[in-house]
Simulated assay, not measured.
Amino acid sequence: MKANSQRVKGKNFRPLHGKPLFRWILDTLLAVEEIDEVVINTDARHILAENGLVETDRVRIRDRQPELCGDTVSMNLILADDLAAVEADTYLMTHTTNPLLTPQTIRSALTQYQDGVAKGEADSLFTVNKIQTRFYRGDASPVNHDPDNLIQTQDLEPWYEENSNLYIFSRDSFAKTNARIGKQPLLHEMDKMEASDIDTPEDWDLAAALAGMRMAKEAAE
């Protein structure tokens, strides 16, 4: 969790419907009983404290190493630092910028991952958006369809977009690739309304609108 952000200034601590953005995903993670500890890797411990967040029996705040600060540092290097300091059988990684991720999706992904590992069919998992639409290159040449034989988009081969919402892996799988995605990853398809990832001001506006819709629906139930 960085203090500064390039495209949406201070987004991790900016209020979203009455609470700072980081609080959305933190509250979600703490609502999942299967998660023993939430580790926050940050260069902004003081800002978290100003927002009322301190360490508890389930929340650990790790100060990001100076050499790992900055906008161009690979997240896999930050994860490697966390793995070296935090012992666990299973690691689950998400971002402050995924405010609409639900406990239900996290539990479902954990179950899929655990089943895949138990069967020897997987060593990691990441969430995706399923996309079935017509793609073109910059020169207007088709990528995944025949313009002379237009079929329904729902009949096109599905493509899967890594949506940066959730990654699950083990220490062993990380060691094989030095990355959060191992050699035998599972794809966990998410509802696009839930898979919001805030990178731009437009993303923020969309997430705020979707969060408002969710809150209104929950209030009416």
Rank of each mutant, 00 (worst) to 15 (best):
M1V: 11
S5R: 08
R7I: 03
K11D: 05
N12F: 03
N12D: 10
R14K: 15
H17G: 04
G18L: 04
G18T: 03
K19G: 08
I25E: 03
D27R: 08
E34C: 09
E34A: 14
I35F: 04
N41G: 05
T42R: 00
A44Y: 02
R45T: 09
H46K: 11
H46I: 02
A49V: 09
E50V: 00
E50L: 08
G52R: 03
G52V: 01
L53P: 01
E55L: 01
E55A: 13
D57R: 15
Q65L: 14
Q65H: 14
L68G: 12
G70Y: 05
V73P: 10
S74G: 12
M75W: 13
D82I: 15
L83W: 04
V86D: 04
A88M: 06
D89K: 07
D89C: 03
D89R: 08
Y91C: 02
H95S: 15
H95K: 07
L100H: 01
L101H: 00
T102M: 08
P103W: 01
Q104E: 15
T105V: 13
I106F: 06
I106V: 14
R107M: 13
L110N: 08
L110W: 00
Q112A: 15
Y113F: 15
Y113W: 09
Y113A: 12
Q114V: 10
A118F: 01
G120K: 00
G120E: 01
A122V: 03
A122Y: 02
A122E: 04
D123N: 08
F126T: 07
F126N: 05
T127I: 06
F135S: 00
G138S: 09
D139F: 13
S141C: 06
S141W: 12
S141L: 11
P142F: 06
V143I: 15
N144F: 11
D148N: 14
D148V: 00
D148P: 03
I151N: 05
Q152F: 13
L156F: 03
E162R: 14
S164I: 05
S164K: 09
N165R: 04
N165D: 13
S170R: 05
F174A: 04
D191A: 11
M193C: 06
S196N: 14
S196M: 13
P201R: 06
P201M: 07
E202S: 07
D205H: 09
A211K: 10
G212R: 09
E218N: 10
E218S: 10
A220G: 07
E221S: 13
E221W: 11
